[in-house]
């Protein structure tokens, strides 16, 4: 049974995306197949070079780099939303695949859950 967790809110502004990340890690802990998809303002999670020390928060970029270690299967981003936020391939953290959010993608997952 596979689960897709969608994060559509920007990082650092609120906690809803982090809840999605916790959910993904918890599923991975029990060896459940789980993939993270970033859409809308959520694609800003994937920008390289974040340094949130000045706002006293942990780097979601560094947090995300633990995802493959914990067993999260893939990090996906909506390509069009990346464009909207000026994110080129070079500016995205490695290991992210750009996809198109649509029925073809969603049909691959038994459960799709939005974070927050």
């Amino acid at each position: 049974m596979s689960t897709l967790i969608i994060i559509d809110s920007a990082p650092y502004g609120d906690w809803s995306g982090r809840e999605g990340l916790d959910m993904a890690f918890s599923l991975a802990a029990f060896d459940q197949s789980v993939t993270l998809l970033f859409i809308g303002a959520g694609v800003n999670w994937l920008r390289k070079g974040q340094s949130p020390e000045g706002i006293s928060q942990k780097s979601v970029e560094k947090n995300l780099s633990a995802a493959p270690i914990f067993g999260v299967e893939a990090l996906l981003a909506d390509g069009r939303d990346c464009q909207t936020y000026g994110l080129t391939e070079d500016e995205l953290i490695a290991s992210v695949s750009q996809v198109e959010l649509g029925p073809e993608l969603l049909n691959q997952y038994k459960h799709t859950v939005f974070a927050g």
Binding site: D22, F25, S26, A28, A29, F30, K58, S59, K62, N63, S65, A66, I69, F70, G71
Partner: peptide, 22 residues
């Protein structure tokens, strides 16, 4: 080292074991 790289503690025992195994 894990914390320096990822700024997060392994959230549970299972993930702690998983990270050490990796």
């Amino acid at each position: 080292d894990f914390y320096n790289k990822h700024e997060v503690s392994p959230p549970s025992n299972r993930l702690f074991v998983k990270a050490v195994r990796e």
